[in-house]
């Protein structure tokens, strides 16, 4: 029982972070049918922003999250303006490789501009203090993660449900031309989607960096892979699906780690997760929440 609760807390924290990233990926896929493999780089941007601020002007974790989130929003918007805008009508293959090119460029820029090695910055002093509930020990950071993620998801749900921007994004995800006919400006809604995806990635970056305060050129890739998988499990373009996929992936990873027998198998955690995912695609290639529309012939 104790173990179960512990695992649940861990998996909610991890899965929540995946959900924030997957939601951004799904959002961008919704409005322009791009699987953005450069999305994970936003975390890297956030990390180096924190590193620079700490090492130049000094900084405090009281306001650092704002700076990190702002840098992520800015970076996300920039990728749209300099690259994705020009391949908007291209085939998925071209768009996918464009995002990969940006991912490569980001890695290269940090490696060349800063250093291939990890750069650490001050940690949050209280992050790993623990609370004891009976036999269950919970880190403060776990609670912060779960709380912030939940808050971000609730706010996102409200934005999508209540604001004109949210409704426009949902409408554009379903039928872009019809949204244009209503007076929605294509550039604006896509840029808005990138900005919002950047915001969510920024929140995820803050949570990640509070745990592991260091910046490394390729740190975004592992998160990206998990987030893309989560978005695809949920069904690309489905916002509910992205959240469900993120949490499901977090649980799968945490529980496999915990319950697989000792020995070789436990090292194969990632292999198992991806194996399960490959099988999932075979059984249900359209994801949990199907958003595909039939093509007219």
């Amino acid at each position: 029982m104790t173990q179960l609760i512990q695992n649940l807390v861990d998996s909610l924290g991890l899965g929540g972070t995946y959900a924030l990233l997957a939601l951004g990926i799904s959002l961008i896929f919704g409005v322009m049918h791009l699987v953005n493999f450069a999305h994970g780089e936003l975390i890297t941007v956030g990390a180096y922003t924190a590193y620079f601020l700490f090492s130049t002007v000094g900084g405090s974790w009281w306001w650092m999250p704002v700076a990190i989130i702002a840098s992520c929003v800015l970076a996300s918007v920039l990728t749209e303006r300099i690259a994705f805008r020009w391949v908007r009508t291209a085939n998925p293959f071209t768009m996918l490789l464009t995002s990969f090119a940006l991912e490569r460029l980001s890695h290269a820029l940090w490696q060349i501009g800063v250093s291939p090695k990890a750069k650490a910055f001050p940690k949050v002093s209280w992050a790993f203090d623990t609370y004891q509930f009976g036999d269950v020990r919970i880190e403060k950071m776990d609670l912060v993660t779960i709380f912030v993620t939940a808050l971000a998801l609730v706010v996102t749900a409200l934005v999508f449900k209540r604001t004109l921007f949210g409704i426009a994004v949902r409408g554009a995800a379903e039928d872009f031309d019809a949204a244009r006919l209503m007076g929605v400006k294509a550039n604006r809604v896509i840029l808005g989607a990138f900005a919002y995806a950047g915001l969510l990635a920024g929140v995820a970056a803050v949570l990640i960096l509070m745990r592991t305060p260091s910046a490394k050129p390729d740190m975004g890739s592992a998160w990206l892979l998990a987030a893309v998988i989560a978005a695809v499990i949920g069904g690309m373009g489905s916002f509910t699906g992205a959240v469900a996929g993120g949490v499901a992936l977090g649980m799968l990873q945490t529980f496999l780690q915990s319950y697989l027998p000792e020995g070789t198998l436990s090292y194969l955690n990632d292999a198992f997760v991806f194996g399960v995912i490959a099988v999932f695609f075979v059984i249900r290639p359209q994801g949990l929440f199907d958003v595909t529309h039939a093509e007219r012939v």
Binding site: L164, I167, A168, R170, G171, E174, D175, A178, A179, M182, G183, V184
Partner: peptide, 15 residues
């Protein structure tokens, strides 16, 4: 927009 409610369809058209 099939995934939006009637009200949301109108709101969006009121952009």
């Amino acid at each position: 927009f099939k995934d939006l409610t009637v009200e949301e369809n109108l709101k969006l058209a009121g952009v």
